[in-house]
Simulated scan of single mutants.
Amino acid sequence: MGQPSSNAFGLTAEQQEYAAWVRSVAGSFDGIEPVHGAVNRPLIKAMGEAGLLRGLFGGNSDDAPRDAAAMQLCLLREVLATVSTEAETALGLQGLGSYPILQSGTDVTRDRWLPGVASGEVVPAFALSEPDAGSDAGALGLEARQNADGWTLHGTKTWISNAPDADVYSVFARTTPGAGARGVTAFVVAGGAAGLTGERLDMVAPHALGTVHFDGVRVTRDDLLGEVDQGFAVAMRTLDLFRPSVGAFAVGMAQAAFDASLAWATERELFGGRLIDQQATQHTLAEMSTRIEAGRLLVRRAAAAYDDGAPAHVITTTAAQAKLFATESAQWVVDQAVQLHGARGLQKGHLLERLYREVRAPRIYEGASEVQRTIIARGLMKGSQ
């Protein structure tokens, strides 16, 4: 299973049972046709019917989502990634797009959207990035023009997962010009809102990604997520939760690559022996395993900090450390796995060919590695004061 039996952040018996259940459920999605570059609604609906999506919000009951448990989210994403990266990505995006609603929406807004997210009938999206505001999210320029009824939104969002097919968007817009991060407000926008259009982007990674245009889209105070000009905090709280889980996704991909490499090295014969008998192979596998374990521990440390209510700068710093190390390590592990497999590892349809394409994006989205290093440095300086 790739899980350590005991360590500082080992799994309880209940968590081990949950991981086994997630793995068994994920295996039932094999018959669902993959979809490249668009939302796979049959897959999301199947995950909802199986109860997997309720795990995004810290529970397994049939009740509407109420809370988010970081450790469970990380465990869910890591285990899913070892079985089906498409299912894992779809699940992660259900959480990312809906968590601003969960944490900052009104009761009416939560009741309208979250039960459908948990059942797989509603597909959400997290709309933060723009053509000129990616890593520097505080520089976003989607304009919210105030009027008697609320605001109208004008501008473009891009690199948005699940766009343009989402049913609901958590949108971050500028309400106060020139105020940087302090002038951003979060809104909930229905996917079918008048003035909202978009198109898909064709990327190397297979999941849905697109651009969304806002041409006078109307929003009211009932559509606010949190307070006016406080939307940047809504975005950052969401990322503090989901960045460790991106690391968990990376750990799961790396574990799948390692498991395949260990099996291949054991059975592959060359130069009169097995590939695993070569010292160079042994050292590579040892390094792969060590980096995976280190990434897993950092992810669980960050999740524990979040769930335990650690100081905000600790939560943010550990989340950045987990995402940085786990995603960078996964890229290296998958690359080494391809090297051990040789040309067959790059053959279309091979597990490693797919992982090789998919492992690259997590080093960029939800804050590129360079951004994570900056966040970590700021956290260290704050902690030393």
Rank of each mutant, 00 (worst) to 15 (best):
T82D: 01
V314D: 13
V204N: 00
R268L: 05
I315N: 01
F9C: 07
S129G: 00
G309C: 12
L201H: 10
D240F: 03
A254Q: 05
A377I: 06
Q282D: 01
L128E: 06
G273V: 07
T12G: 14
L80M: 15
A137E: 15
G97L: 05
R243A: 15
K348R: 11
R301C: 10
G97F: 04
V22M: 01
P244G: 11
L224Q: 05
M236D: 14
D222W: 02
T316M: 07
T175A: 14
T185M: 07
T85R: 01
L75I: 14
R112F: 02
S161I: 07
L262W: 00
A46R: 11
A302W: 04
G198H: 08
L380E: 14
G231I: 06
G97T: 01
A193R: 05
R23Q: 10
T318H: 13
I364E: 15
A320V: 09
R344V: 14
D240M: 12
F258M: 09
G383D: 13
E370K: 11
K45R: 15
M236H: 05
F9N: 14
L297R: 15
F249E: 06
I44Y: 04
A139I: 04
A144G: 06
G97Q: 05
N7S: 13
Y99T: 01
R268C: 07
S135M: 12
A163C: 11
V25F: 00
P65N: 04
E358R: 01
S129I: 03
D136W: 14
R344Q: 12
L93A: 05
P65L: 06
A139Q: 13
L142S: 04
L142V: 13
L114P: 04
L201S: 08
A265F: 03
V228A: 06
S98L: 05
F271C: 04
G379A: 13
Q279S: 08
W332C: 11
A46H: 01
